[in-house]
Design a protein around this nucleic acid. Structure first.
Lengths: 337, 337
DNA sequence: ATGAAAGCGCTAACAT
DNA sequence: ATGTTAGCGCTTTCAT
């Protein structure tokens, strides 16, 4: 390996302890000695070995980022948060390690193993694990700080960052209602996913608020994929030709549907209005630019990172709610009658 | 911290070395002792401290993933490769650490610092650093294995994985030519980026191959963003109304252009044919589904990871070329005359 | 202000 | 087959 603190000490004619103190800006080092050390660091290109520090200090400065490792055909949601979280953590002097965990083959205790193995100071669990996934039981069992994204969790050593999905569903639906639509379809993602249910609640809430009766026929469940959106919308419109607008639980399904409708000469928004959900980077360049609900990835990422940093400092866990925004673009037509 | 190997040894009435041997499946341990150790591991929930192992073994099992840390408004290319690379590396028993490096404020030696600090066994440098970026000089200076994505590099301890971008540009352009187009525009990304130049070469190569004269007026440089694609295409078509097809150096610009053209009642592919580049996940759900060049993210990721593993095993660096594919979809119209 | 030495958890000679 | 021991690079008492 490279230059060690011992080499440094020899080079300076000082003891390792003095060098260590100088390196860590501690008291009890003469200015002269400190300068000598700093100069030697430069000359010898000394880089401290974090692993060795960790061993004696018993804290690692390493944060585990827990991602699911199953199917990457559907764009994994964690990709949107990852760069922002990593950035904040890096700025705070933390290094980040990626740990991939299977959603399907998880065995109890795996999380704790990962944490202990590399001595993580804290973890961030990215979206992609279902409510009720055994990993959350494990989170509760440990004492290492954990921040969970897009799932509720309550414990002193845990914080959670959640988008107000009900509000998101409500904003989307209400925008359609305020644009004059009365027969509004909803194509949800997989029903067993928590956020699906919340967006669905938002849909119903908006209808109720505006006195529009809820019609179960107008709701379908799909799979968050483009093809799924296309198929579901086709079926929905066939069975309910009076529908003038559809709210999709994510942008990808909305895009798949628009693309498919267009092939069949059904134009958006002229013939049918569409609202998506996610605020995907490309939604603004869609044809037509997609009206959608913006998830605040940057805000979520930043708050998640800061929440974890607070937890590590010893503060109590908290639950943060992020407000989604409606992005009005051009996939919704105003209709009158 | 938790249970150490000493606790384990005491619990088993064995020496630490015997326990260590049992733990590492080494010779010279009686079956009885091995069983005793394994049982204790389970009971005491022993998890080895990788940091301590690292210190003595002098190899860390940790791979550094070097990402640029500047602007995330443009979708960072590394997001596409990241999950695949991480997956292969994890399966090979390597842990991965993310290191964000600024493209702008890089100071020489930074890479080496990161490597030494955490004792990386190897690094993968993701796309996003320009040719000539000082990080590549640093790569050449060190001896740690490095795999570079989408940039050429030659050294015994380095491998590079490159898409054949010239071929990509050629395939895109040729598809347009074979569809009957003669006046084909090209909207490139930022000119100082290496891949831009290669895609441009491919464009010219295809023209030449088919005996179509190269017209400098048909080429514009933009910025890889959606707005840029929209603006550039508007200008290009205004100045050269005879153009019937445009090849964009990435999908996002193509999408921005189509979305914008559509607003002005210019339909794709009826009025103008478009080919993109990247094979973005959403390109198939675009309206119309976008004809584009597929970058093989999964293949690149897998080969990059394996190349690094080989380098770590001591093999010589190599240069891998990945063949892009043309995805024929519906943004190109066949024209006759 | 500085130094000596113990020890973090582990592996790897080197005994026995 | 098992045990003893010397470090890996560093911080941190405890002396001086």
């Amino acid at each position: 390996m490279g230059i060690s603190i011992i080499d440094l000490a020899k080079h300076c004619n000082l003891s390792v302890s003095t060098v260590s103190r100088a390196l860590n800006n501690q008291y009890g080092v003469s200015e002269k000695a400190r300068q000598k050390v700093l100069k030697a660091v430069d000359e010898l290109r000394y880089v401290p070995n974090e692993g060795a520090k960790e061993l004696v200090r018993k804290r690692s400065n390493v944060i585990g980022l827990i991602l699911h490792g199953d199917d990457y055909e559907v764009e994994p949601a964690f990709l949107h948060h990852l760069p922002y979280i990593n950035q904040v953590l890096n700025e705070a002097g933390k290094d980040t390690m990626i740990q991939t965990i299977s959603r399907v083959n998880y065995h109890s205790g795996e999380l704790q193993q990962f944490i202990q193995k590399r001595n993580f100071e804290g973890c961030i669990i990215f979206p992609g694990f279902l409510k009720g996934h055994p990993i959350f039981d494990d989170v509760l069992k440990i004492k290492t700080p954990v921040v969970v994204l897009e799932e509720e969790i309550e414990a002193p050593h845990c914080s959670s960052i959640n988008t107000d999905e009900i509000l998101g569903g409500e904003l989307a639906t209400e925008h359609l209602i305020l644009s004059g639509h009365k027969h509004i379809g909803f194509i949800n993602g997989l029903g067993f996913i928590h956020i699906s249910n919340l967006r669905f609640q938002g849909y119903k809430k908006a209808l109720e608020k505006h006195g529009i009766p809820y019609n179960q026929e107008y709701v379908m469940e799909s799979n968050y994929k483009g093809e799924g959106g296309a198929e579901a919308s086709t079926e929905l419109l066939q069975r309910n030709p009076e529908i003038t607008a559809i709210f999709f639980a994510n942008d990808v399904m909305a895009m798949g549907a628009i693309s498919n409708l267009s092939k069949r000469n059904i134009a958006v928004p002229q013939d049918i209005s569409i609202v998506g959900y996610d605020g995907h980077r490309l939604s603004q360049f869609y044809n037509p630019p997609l009206t959608t609900i913006q998830i605040q990835y940057k805000e979520i990422g930043g708050k998640a990172a800061h929440a974890l940093l607070e937890l590590i400092e010893g503060r109590q866990g908290k639950s943060v709610s992020i407000v989604p925004r409606l992005l009005k673009r051009e996939s919704v037509k105003r209709i009158d009658y």
